[in-house]
Design a protein around this nucleic acid. Structure first.
Lengths: 121, 121
DNA sequence: CTTTCATTCACCCTTTTGGTTGACTGAATG
DNA sequence: CATTCAGTCAACCAAAAGGGTGAATGAAAG
């Protein structure tokens, strides 16, 4: 809690990759589908979208590189499974931002209180 | 908790905008600066980056459109202030995803238990 | 009244992104 | 052995993103 850099500089690249991956609506829909239906084949996922299998395949690769899904290749079939862990990194970044913000407000409050005390002299 | 669509379809566009805005490292750095130092002028923010004032200005506009900062224009000076609320929408989406995922696992568990019961017959 | 200052606006350029189509692979099936 | 099927790879394209520069604006200060 006291560290101002809980989310390390080296994590920033990864964080960017995860957030970029999750910021696309199609990819978020993919994650939702996977959460709902469990591990699924690429083709099965693709049926839900009004776009070519190829495009869906590319979206999956983006999610995979970000660690948001893993792939288990069972011969010609590729089984895709959602991974929740990477989202923690985003959560952590938010928490850090909010805590920095809260700390500043507390410090500000402290100063104001001191000034008020001064006024009493 | 029971609604499968706590984050409404109409929110998806907004969610995308917020996540896209927050997925850029420069913009995240801006948010951190604002959380640390409080409301700041555009020029003051720009000094922290190795890029033109114009580019920083553009990044700020992206954050502003996403609602992650607000601008108070005091004549030639524009005071930028961070807004934490929009992050809640991302939190909510994550929560929803995780709950969908958990629900599927629970249901799966239920089925497995029933099958085990069947085996006992 | 010219200069300065803080910032945006309007273009321009390059890279990335999201999508397409067409060919390739390699097991399984007729 | 030809075909189908699941999926990727490669090339291509349009649009968006991220960066830069050079005006323009408009109050304040000399």
């Amino acid at each position: 809690m006291l560290f101002t850099h809980m989310v390390e500089r080296k994590d920033q690249t990864q964080l960017t990759e995860i957030m970029k991956a999750a910021s696309d609506p199609t990819r978020r829909a993919l994650l939702t589908l996977l959460a709902q239906h469990g591990p699924s084949r690429v083709t099965a996922l693709a049926t839900h979208f009004d776009m070519s299998l190829n495009s869906v395949s590319k979206h999956i690769k983006v999610l995979e590189k970000a660690g948001l899904v893993v792939r288990r290749t069972e011969w010609r079939e590729h089984i895709i499974e959602v991974q929740m862990e990477p989202l923690r990194l985003i959560d952590m970044w938010f928490d850090e931002l909010r805590s920095i913000w809260a700390m500043r407000l507390e410090a500000l409050d402290q100063i104001l209180t001191m000034e008020t005390a001064n006024d009493d002299d």
